[in-house]
Design a protein around this nucleic acid. Structure first.
Length: 253
DNA sequence: GCTATTTGACCAGC
DNA sequence: GCTGGTCAAATAGC
């Protein structure tokens, strides 16, 4: 069996496989030492998600090159289900910047990466559905021109494991059942161009969110990624858990 | 008593 | 000086 993969697709697949290899090594290390079941489970979930994505990327590459000798499309598994992601006002092609290096530094001088999504409240809850990570609220602020205050959350493991991720949650002005959630990662642990291998936070899911941000920024063909790829990278999106991300940001650097 | 949340104050960037 | 992000003391819930 043979196939032809276009260059960008091949690069993405290779990048994914490198990540899989790294995760497997982490898992192997944990298996030979005292290990949190949750941590190992998180690593396994990441490996599964990455392999799914690799297959999906390869499938699309083969499909796009169908006129040039692709042969895998009819046998490869489908892409992970991300079809619940629909366009939102956040990705309307305006100058909105859902994923960016933040130039406007405030206080912190380290580089920061943000990822913004719009999520719906779970059953009319006060806030967006639990995203599966551990957050602790540390502040709330009325924002000029906004009808609703913005809540500030940091990783629960900030003090114990040096996890520096934060997120901001704000109810949208036009629809009280929707929330804009901004995840923020800093490069305190070498995220800036150095990959994602220096995490000390044991919250596997959160670790993946932020490490994914760094991986995307350093991916060789990140510009070719679409919104589904982005969400897949950043959240391993599970609508059953997250309560429905109704908007996926356009990819931006 | 411990942990999480609230909220006013403080600080830095513009 | 204004605004947004963070700090930290006070408070609430378990």
């Amino acid at each position: 069996m043979e196939g032809v993969v276009d260059g960008s697709g091949a690069q993405l697949v290779v990048a994914e496989l490198v990540r899989v290899q790294g995760l497997l090594r982490q898992l192997e290390a944990h298996l030979s030492a005292p290990c949190s079941v949750e941590l190992c489970r998180g690593l396994a979930a990441q490996i599964v998600a990455l392999t799914d994505r690799s297959i999906g990327i390869a499938t699309r590459s083969f499909s796009s090159a169908s006129g040039g000798g692709a042969h895998f499309a009819d046998t490869a598994p489908p892409m992970p289900a991300l079809t619940s992601c629909t366009p939102s006002p956040l990705s309307d092609g305006s100058d909105h910047q859902p994923f960016r290096t933040t130039n406007a530094k405030k206080r912190k001088t380290t580089a920061r990466w943000t990822s913004q999504v719009r999520v719906s409240a779970a059953g009319g809850a006060e806030g967006p559905a639990d995203d599966g990570h551990s957050w602790r609220k540390y502040g709330q602020k009325d924002i000029l021109g906004a009808k609703h205050p913005r809540g500030y959350y940091r990783c629960t493991h900030r003090n114990t494991q040096g996890c520096t991720a934060t997120k901001q949650v704000q109810r949208t002005d036009d629809d009280a059942s929707l929330f804009d959630v901004v995840y923020v990662a800093s490069d305190s642990y070498g995220l800036g161009g150095a990959g994602y291998g220096d995490w000390r936070c044991c919250d596997g899911d959160l670790q993946e969110v932020v490490s994914a941000l760094a991986t995307v920024t350093s991916a060789p063909d990140h510009a070719a990624m679409d919104a589904a790829d982005f969400m897949s990278y950043c959240f391993d999106f599970d609508p059953a858990v997250y309560g429905g991300i109704v908007g996926t940001p356009s990819f931006f650097l």
